[in-house]
Write a protein that binds this DNA or RNA. Sequence first.
DNA 1: ACGATGACGTTAT
DNA 2: TATAACGCCATCG
Length: 108
Amino acid sequence: MSQFYEDVYQVTCRIPAGRVTTYGAIAAMLARPMAARAVGYALSALPEGTSVPWHRVINAQGRISLKDRHPGETGLQRRLLEREGVVFDSEDRVDLRLIGWVDPAEPE
DNA sequence: ACGATGACGTTAT
DNA sequence: TATAACGCCATCG
């Protein structure tokens, strides 16, 4: 397990339930503002039963970037978030200004 | 070492 | 709003 992966998971675990953050934001917290893509790559490596709240990570547009794996599955990630109270608008987007999370310990 | 890949982000059409 | 073109980065084969 690379240090990068661990850092990504560590930050992801700090996201409170009912809140979300973006790949880019996580990358920025790791002092790598341009590594959003790599963050997604790291999350994709997580096993199914992981305790890491990977579903709280979405893209900068407030939308889910993960396509449904199996036909019939109407967005696992979305259901997990809605179960935490996250609301999606008519265009399947969430208001990051409202529930977007930023690490308080992270200076701007 | 090198080119390809992907749960990204920004900018230009 | 939707699509495309780039740039970026850690991994993979």
